[in-house]
Nucleic acid binder design. Structure first.
Lengths: 344, 344
DNA sequence: TTTTTTTACGAAAACGTTTGCGGCGAGGCA
DNA sequence: TGCCTCGCCGCAAACGTTTTCGTAAAAAAA
């Protein structure tokens, strides 16, 4: 089962030229005559010659591919972001290798090492919920592997970062609930170790405080695996629902968390928003057909993916070591729908 | 910005051995003494030696990577399927390179050629909605590139195929609507050229006929880009809704089509299922929180991805040319929810 | 004409592996 | 002692490129 393509050597033999001449002709070198160039190019086109990218990679020490590590591809936010990555990468002739950590620290390490040994030219990373230590990535970065973080970033590695304005998104979501008249707003969020968790938590707290309310720690629940394990979300939700002074609204901080919470509330026959209101962070394209339609903070996932890829390729192709890194913050959008409407 | 790792050559130099001895020791060859092997292995481990996969690819003519072509990763069915692909591939130490055709014939061709020139060892393909001719894939397959089709397959290329039992899925969905008392059931489906379209259409028709009803061609609408372009879906839906003898139920044949249809009905203020019932093909994990919760045919996406990958790797690693190909058909599951309940 | 420059090409090394083959020393056998 | 076998290892070619350098012949300058 061998798959053989035409090589430079074949062209050289066919045209009675040397390998190096053909190579140079193909790359348009000035030291080859117009006539020879034309001959080579014509022959190459006619025989559908495609340079072997593996040989090129070996020779050039670059593979023209970038690795992506996300927790989960089966998630609206990340699939949209990857869409963005893919579009930019393709346009600049890079391949994309996608891997999933599934919120596991172990798998994140394995993936990063595997990708680097596969000689990707750079990495686009969104950290797993379990990750507390980023040494595995710091090591690779120190060795010269360019990387860009997006969404779930870390302060410990100095490189480009792309995030949504999580603070503002959360602030506005919470303020919206407050404006609707809700007073006890629970916050169900992801693992404490994630940057997005902290940022969104701060936005939530600030909105409460600006409204003269004191954030109640009992109303803040951390879900270890970001909603991937339904049982965890269920426990967090039950905990706040069983409180004596039950909250009148919930603000969920991630995609999976939001849909799961809505689903659970429905199973418990708790009416949204009459008995409890809900605002979530989600990029689901179906949020408008949920029951009730879900008010949500939408992140510019596609743009984030594109921007991260742009920055990464910039890093990869930069002649001299880059020392000035940027942290791009893109605005979110609050889509107000029924799940947050006050019912009188 | 160079990223340099330790090579066989470094090990050889350090231990005063030849390159070939080191290589053989690392691969556990019998012609190397136990002692030397141990030395080499120990040194390699101590210095975190990782063979350069690019050099190995070049030498061995295999890249240990497989390419995937789907229309759209941002789609529940496909992201789940890719999940399956990734899990099996990873386990067998293959890389996965994912590309999207976005339902474009051109992009499908470009992707397949790009992947084959990237020397993937095999391809997992689900055809685009625009694709009518599969010569580009047939050519690659004839040249010896193993491939497995899933979901949207073709009869024109003889290789392994993995599909859901679309006929039965559609049959049961339609029968369910009939049992609920609906009589005029519209069918909104994808491009005529897709295998899934035909199979689901046949199931739909058969159920009607078995119930003594004659399928009405006017009730069957084909949407060219499988729901990717909302306007097309909107037109198809409007067409059936504006009929004098308006249908009392709709059966949508794909993921995006189903969510879009529900969304559109809602925007038109048409109550589901009171004014019109709906059953869809979808793998959305949120179908239970839709308004109304959506009765749907669920495909075993994960298993399909896993199976396709198993078969592909089998093909890739087979010593002798495979001539007997299988077509695996996995059962779907009908999840009955509110959108198909008869309201009296 | 002779010398210098330019043009156009080829030889060969290199990227990091794998692998067939040949060699060398030691031990076994006659 | 001579021959064969066998265990262990190194040499070198190969995978398909890119790139440096060398070198003919042709063109320009003297």
């Amino acid at each position: 089962m061998k798959f053989e393509a035409i090589t430079i050597k074949d062209i050289a033999k066919a045209l009675g030229l040397s390998i190096s001449t053909v190579s140079k002709a193909l790359r348009g070198s000035h030291e080859i005559s117009q006539e020879t160039k034309k001959n080579v190019l014509d022959y190459a086109r006619a025989n559908n010659y495609k340079p072997n990218p593996i040989a090129q990679s070996l020779k050039r020490g670059r593979s023209k591919s970038i690795g992506v590590i996300v927790c989960n591809i089966d998630n609206n936010f990340f699939s949209q972001a990857i869409n963005g990555v893919e579009s930019v990468a393709r346009q600049k002739d890079y391949n994309v290798i996608i891997t999933q950590s599934r919120e596991s620290y172990e798998r994140e390490i394995a993936n990063s090492e595997h990708l680097s040994s596969r000689s990707v030219d750079g990495l686009i990373v969104s950290l797993s919920a379990e990750t507390r230590c980023v040494d595995h990535l710091a090591r690779l970065n120190a060795k010269g592997l360019p990387m860009v973080f997006f969404d779930r970033i870390t302060d410990e590695i100095d490189t480009h970062k792309v995030i949504a304005n999580n603070y503002r998104g959360a602030y506005e979501a919470t303020r919206h609930l407050l404006e609707q008249g809700f007073r006890r707003i629970a916050h169900i969020t992801s693992s404490r170790s994630l940057s997005i968790t902290l940022e969104r938590l701060e936005g939530y707290k600030a909105a409460l405080q600006d409204a003269g309310l004191q954030p109640d720690p009992a109303l803040i629940k951390f879900v270890q695996h970001g909603g991937m394990i339904q049982e965890e979300t269920s426990q967090a939700l039950s905990a706040v629902l069983e409180m004596d002074d039950r909250p009148d609204a919930v603000f969920t901080a991630s995609d999976r968390l939001s849909t799961t919470t809505l689903s659970l509330l429905r199973k418990m026959n708790i009416e949204v928003p009459r008995q409890i209101a809900l605002v979530g962070f989600t990029n689901s394209i179906s949020a408008d057909i949920f029951h009730p339609s879900l008010t949500c903070v939408v992140q510019p996932a596609l743009e984030m993916g594109q921007l991260a890829t742009d920055l990464l390729i910039q890093l990869i192709e930069s002649k001299r070591p880059v020392t000035q890194f940027q942290k791009k913050v893109l605005e979110t959008e609050l889509k107000i729908r029924n799940s947050s409407q006050r019912v009188r």
